[in-house]
Nucleic acid binder design. Structure first.
Lengths: 196, 196
DNA sequence: AACGCTATGTCAGTCGCTGCCATCAAGCTA
DNA sequence: TAGCTTGATGGCAGCGACTGACATAGCGTT
């Protein structure tokens, strides 16, 4: 991380990373599949955390409540980390497409694992995959909004808020929609937030 | 595509692709940012199709119905392509992590564009992002199930089915759950704690 | 001491990708 | 017509990520 801050991600060579760790480049590639993977060692733990939460939910729990528990578990873990690291890492990943790609495939594999856990509970397709995808969508949106939040509400708060909002949008189907009474004057728009 | 089938993706060098097209490697990289991009030229058209469907929806249309229209538009376009190509491409992408990564970032950028289009209609955050993420989730699940479908129901059918199922899961919260004897305990309601 | 296992180093090589400069064809202008 | 610009392409050199093959060092077991 220090090296990345110093010379940027692309400006840092694998050999530099390795020698900083007292290793050679070749040995680096025996520990990490590629250069990007150094930044994604935590994804396995997160996955285990969430699937365990689903597997451990009391029988009879609805799929929706099971993934809600998984989201709670992820929030507890992430809120506990050093916020400066979380922010630095997010800025780095957001600034480099190759890192964003890796992040997305990790999240996709997370969704796949969540769907697996749901199926192991007896949830059928396509409900399992859809619930899992929805959960990851909530995670992504909640995560971004957490870090952008001026009033420092917690990650778990944002996850809950996002999940509730998603329920509303897919329920009535009109959440967040502009009031349709006076169609001639457009409603004042909120400033668009970059979402990557 | 012929080259990829012949020697596999990794076994095909950019120089081979270029010379097959009557160009040099250097010129290839002036048309495509990298080797993977040859397989993703269609993503821009798909994005335009979907955002146009959202923008063109009659005023007063709910966010949910707007993305449903976008999904319909994507189905119409994809069902029209040569199915053999769609299948070959999907198999190729599924077999190579680097291609899957690229696919995922394209879908993420698609979600971002959809959210933008919704915001332009006056939909506020986080409803816009969540609806967009949900739509892409439906797209992903519907796409896979379409290609795996034994009875050859159309892509649009599967998209509809997936969207409906998602609504159900997030509504009652018990869709797809195992038909065990109903637990006597009422579903624990997630209490939105105001602050923390 | 001999053996085997594992982690690490060394080296050479391939390939994706980029910067720099030359070339060439097609216009446009004086 | 000669000269100039512009855009597309080729040629070339080079960097850095990544891999395969092999050597070596360390360490525990017997």
């Amino acid at each position: 991380m220090e090296l990345f801050k110093l010379r940027g991600y692309t400006g840092t060579t694998v050999e530099e990373i390795a020698s900083r760790a007292g290793l050679t480049e070749r040995t680096f590639f025996r520990y990490f599949a590629d250069k990007r993977e150094v930044l994604f060692s935590g994804s396995a733990t997160l996955q285990k955390l969430m699937t365990d939460a689903i597997t451990g939910a009391p029988p009879g729990t609805s799929p929706l409540d099971a993934v809600a528990a998984a989201l709670d578990a992820s929030a507890a873990a992430l809120e506990q980390r050093d916020e400066r690291y979380v922010r630095a890492r997010r800025a780095l990943v957001g600034a480099h497409a190759e890192l964003l790609e890796r992040e997305l495939i990790k999240l996709a594999s997370l969704a796949s694992a969540v769907a697996d856990a749901l199926r192991r509970r007896g949830v059928t397709e396509p409900a399992a995959s859809l619930t899992a995808e929805a959960a990851i969508g909530v995670f992504k949106v909640g995560f971004e909004r957490w870090l952008d939040d001026k009033k420092a509400r917690g990650f778990s708060w944002h996850l809950r808020a996002a999940l509730d909002e998603l329920k509303t949008v897919l329920g009535s189907g009109n959440a967040g929609a502009p009031a349709t009474s006076r169609a001639t004057t457009p409603r004042p728009r909120r400033s668009p937030r970059a979402h990557e």
